[in-house]
Write a protein that binds this DNA or RNA. Structure first.
Lengths: 337, 337
DNA sequence: TCATTTGCTTTAATCGTTTAAAGTGATAGC
DNA sequence: GCTATCACTTTAAACGATTAAAGCAAATGA
C-alpha cells in the first residue's frame, strides 16, 4: 500500500492537483470550488486515507510548526515537568515539540542544537549547559528564534525565563534562620553556571542580613563528576566541625537525594540531628520519613511562558523578554520547628 | 542573515549546484570532481556556514532518519529510562528521535501517532495505551514499520519487546513466600491491559504452586482515575481483614509510592507491620527508610532491542520478533527476613 | 585525421506540496 | 453582437535538495 498524495486524489476524482489542495486546506470557499467537486474531493481523501506530507508542506511553506527543546538531563524531575508543560502549551498552538537531552554535556548540546536547526524547527527552547555561550551566540548571529529557560548567561542578552534564584535561596535560608538555626551549611555544585551562583549569593546574603558570621566550611562545592563521594565527605565535614552545622540546604534535588541517602546511612535523624531543605521537587521527598521541606519551581508557568515567548519571537520577531519567576517554599517536617 | 543553500555556495564558487551537492555528500571521488573545485566548495561551505536543509533532503530521499517514540507518561521513571536508552541507541545509527507522551490517553495517543506519521518518521516505537488496538491495526494496514515496547496485545501479532511480566510477578511472589509470608496482597490497576493481567497471573500462580489458598480480598484493583483514594482504601482493607495481610506487592512504582505514603501516614512500619515489594524502580524507593525491594526492568536492553528491531524493520522490511526480557529482583530491607 | 576515451561539469527532472496567474465556457449588460 | 463579468478550473513555477543523463574539451589511439 503506497502513500497517497494529492495527485492520487486528483486522478481519482478527475480534477487538477490544485483544486484538491484548495479543498483540503479549507480554501474551497474563497477559491470558489464547486460544491460538487469539493464534495467528491473530500470523499476521495477519506476513502484513500490521505495524509498530507508535512515534509513537502514544510519545504514549501518555510515553516515546520515544530519547536526544538533541549533539556539538561531527562532524568531530572525538572526536565520531565518542563517538557510536559511545554508540550501541552505547544499543542494548543498546533506546534509539535522535537526533544533532546544534552546530559549536561557541552558537545551533545551543540550537536542537538544543530540537528534541530537542520530539521528546520521554527524555534528553540533551551536549557543551556555550562560553557555553551558560543552556541548561544551562534544562534543569535544566525537569527534563529530561541528562548533560554532555567538558566542564562548574564553576559549575553537573551530572551529567558528563569527562577529568581537569588531570592529563592534567600527566602529558604531566612526560613532556616527563623527556625532558630545559626549554623547552616549550603551544598552546591562547583560550577560556573550563573543560576547556581545566584543561589550561593542568596544564601550568603541571608546570613549577612541576619548577622550570622559565615564560616567558609559551610559552603561545600561538589564536583559533579564525583557527586556521590563528594557529598558524603561534605556532610561528614559539616557534621564534624568544632561547631557542627545544625541545618543543611541543598542547591538541587539531586544533591539532596544523595545527601539524604548518606544521612540515612550514618543514621543521622532529620530534623533532630540536622534540618534539611532542598531546592526543587522530587517524588522521593515525599517518601522520606519526614516530608522534605523544599522550594518548588513553577514549571507549568515556566513552560507556558517559554512557549508564549518563543511563538511571539517566531511571529513578530523582535522582542526582548527576561521573565523572572518565584518559587514556593513547601514546608514539610525536615526542619526543626 | 538569510539561510544559505547549495545555490549560494554554487554561486560563490562559480560552479553548478550538482557539483556542490556531490562534494558535500562525500561523492567527490566517485564523481571525479576536480581537487581544486572540491577544495573551494568545502571552503565556501565552511565560510558561509552552510547547513543542509534536512526537510528538502527528506522529501527527495523519502527518508527522514527520524524515529517516532510515544511513551505512556513522561512522568514515569520507566519512560525517562527508556527514552534515554532509545535516544542513545538511535544516535549511534544516526537517527533522531521525535518524542511524545500520550498520558495514557487513547485520543492523545492516536493524535501523536498521526502527527508523527505526517512528519514522515521512518518508523515508530510505541508504548501503546489501553484500547489502542485499532491504531495498531491501522499501522499494520498502512505498512508503517513499528515496534511495541513494554506492552502488547496478545490478539494482534506485532513486533514487540516486553518484560516477561508473568515470570517477574511469579518470582517476586515466590520470594515473599520464601520469606515466610502466607497472606500476600497484590495491588494492581483495574485495567484490561495484558501486561498487567500477566502480573496478576504470575502472582496467582505462585500462590497456587506454593499451596496458598488465595483470598480474593487480597487482589485489589485500583481505578486509575482515583488512584490515591483507592489505594488508601485498599490498604485499609487488607490490613483489617480477619486475617490481615502481612505483605503487599504493588504492580507498579506509582502504586507503590502512593501506597507507601499512606503507610507512612498511618504509621505502619515496613517491614515490621507489613512487607512491601514493588514492580519497577524509583528514586523514591532509595529514600524510604528501608530500601524498597523491587523488580528492576532492563530499560537499557529494552531500548536497544527496540531500536535494533525497528531499524531492521525499516531496512529489510519483513521480520517478526517478539522479545521477552527478564527483570532483576533488587532486594532491599522492605521485606521481612 | 578522425573516432574514441577520459576527466570533469552542467542540465534538468524529481520529491509532494502551495498558490499566483492564466485559461475557459457560460451568462449578462448594453 | 460584442465585450465584460462570473464561476470555476488548470497551468506552472516555486521550495532545496539528489542524481541520472547529457555535454564538452582535451588527451589518446588507430
Amino acid at each position: 500500500m503506497k502513500k497517497v498524495g494529492l495527485k492520487d486524489i486528483a486522478e481519482h476524482v478527475g480534477v487538477s492537483i490544485a483544486l484538491v489542495s484548495y479543498v483540503l486546506n479549507g480554501q474551497a470557499e474563497i477559491k470558489q470550488v464547486s460544491k460538487d467537486n469539493a464534495q467528491k474531493i473530500k470523499a476521495a481523501a477519506e476513502l484513500l486515507n490521505y495524509r498530507p506530507n508535512q515534509i513537502a508542506k514544510s519545504l514549501k511553506m518555510h515553516k515546520t510548526h515544530t519547536i526544538g527543546l533541549v533539556v539538561a538531563d531527562i532524568n531530572y524531575r525538572f526536565s520531565t515537568g518542563i517538557t510536559r508543560a511545554i508540550e501541552a502549551e505547544a499543542k494548543k498552538a498546533n506546534y509539535t515539540v522535537l526533544f533532546g537531552s544534552s546530559n549536561e554535556n557541552e558537545d551533545t548540546f551543540a550537536e542537538l542544537v544543530n540537528v534541530l536547526i537542520n530539521r528546520q524547527v521554527d524555534g528553540l527552547i533551551l536549557v543551556p549547559v555550562e560553557n555553551s555561550q558560543d552556541q548561544i551566540k551562534m544562534l543569535q548571529k544566525a537569527e534563529i528564534p530561541f528562548v533560554l529557560i532555567d538558566r542564562n548567561f548574564p553576559e549575553i542578552t537573551t530572551n529567558h525565563i528563569a527562577l529568581d534564584n537569588y531570592k529563592a535561596a534567600y527566602i529558604a535560608t531566612a526560613y532556616l534562620i527563623k527556625q532558630g538555626h545559626k549554623r547552616i551549611a549550603f551544598i552546591n555544585y562547583d560550577t560556573n553556571m550563573f543560576h547556581l551562583h545566584e543561589r550561593n549569593r542568596g544564601y550568603l546574603e541571608a546570613l549577612k542580613d541576619n548577622n550570622i558570621a559565615f564560616d567558609e566550611d559551610w559552603l561545600q562545592q561538589i564536583n559533579s563528576n564525583n557527586r556521590v563521594g563528594d557529598i558524603d565527605q561534605s556532610l561528614d565535614k559539616i557534621l564534624n566541625l568544632d561547631q557542627p552545622c545544625d541545618a543543611v540546604f541543598f542547591a538541587t534535588d539531586t544533591l539532596a537525594i544523595n545527601g539524604l541517602k548518606y544521612l540515612n546511612k550514618i543514621k543521622a535523624k532529620v530534623p533532630q540531628d540536622i534540618s534539611v531543605l532542598s531546592f526543587d521537587e522530587s517524588e522521593a521527598f515525599e517518601l522520606f520519613y519526614n516530608l522534605v521541606t523544599h522550594l518548588r519551581q513553577p514549571v507549568e508557568a515556566m513552560g507556558k511562558a517559554a512557549v508564549d515567548t518563543l511563538l511571539e519571537l517566531i511571529n513578530h520577531s523582535k522582542i526582548n523578554k527576561q521573565i523572572s519567576l518565584e518559587s514556593d517554599l513547601i514546608v514539610g517536617q525536615s526542619c526543626r520547628e
